[in-house]
């Protein structure tokens, strides 16, 4: 008797499979832990200008595992991370949303660009570009701060929040995402489920 393992119907990029749930949970937990560690060893206040390797983790999870994982890693990771540092899970919902959107947008690139990513090198490059573009777009959401903190004005958010954060996060995305893609690629190829 011979039974070829049937080629399973691949679930679409938006379904909440066990795999998506576990990767999202791990992504979110890692994001929160990295965030916590930079919180635990840093001087308070220097956050927005310091290096943020955890941000590159978020774009990597989106890039490697799709938009849903990207969104949940960013959104839940930021909610839980804010809770962990004491900032409060719901204190800055727009920031959580921005992180989620950035992860999600990064996750759309491999779907759009699948045909272009022929080598590991081009994949890493796409990852860097995707991370930066997703950051610039996703973080526009933080202008919701105008509603949530009525005292702030547009210029303040632009100069003290949007621009510095987008710069710091873009750098992290551009550097860290490809490093992780290059590290993960050979291993995921080996595991081959």
């Amino acid at each position: 008797m011979t039974a070829m393992a049937q080629p399973q119907t691949t679930p679409g990029p938006w379904s909440l499979t066990t795999r998506v749930i576990v990767y999202s949970a791990i992504g979110a937990a890692l994001y929160a832990v990295f965030n916590w560690i930079s919180f635990a060893i840093q001087i308070p206040g220097a956050e927005s200008v310091s290096v943020r390797p955890h941000y590159g983790l978020l774009t990597f999870f989106g890039f490697a595992f799709g938009p849903v994982v990207g969104f949940l890693t960013g959104f839940v990771g930021n909610v839980v991370g804010d809770q962990l540092t004491g900032w409060g899970a719901f204190t800055s919902p727009h920031w959580s949303l921005a992180n989620g959107l950035a992860g999600m947008i990064t996750g759309l690139f491999p779907i759009w660009m699948a045909s272009r990513m022929t080598s590991v090198g081009s994949k890493a490059l796409t990852a860097a570009v995707a991370g930066v573009v997703a950051t610039v777009i996703g973080f526009l959401v933080i202008f919701l701060g105008l509603v949530l903190t009525p005292e702030l004005d547009f210029n303040t958010i632009l100069t003290t929040e949007y621009i510095p954060v987008v710069i710091a996060n873009s750098i992290a995305a551009a550097i860290v995402t490809p490093i992780l893609v290059l590290a993960w690629e050979p291993i995921s190829a080996q595991m081959g489920r």
């Binding site: 008797m1 039974a3 393992a5 399973q8």
Partner: peptide, 13 residues
């Protein structure tokens, strides 16, 4: 888990 999660060539039962 084989063959439901791990894919490959399976013969026998």
């Amino acid at each position: 888990l084989i063959p439901h999660s791990y894919h490959g060539d399976l013969t026998g039962s």
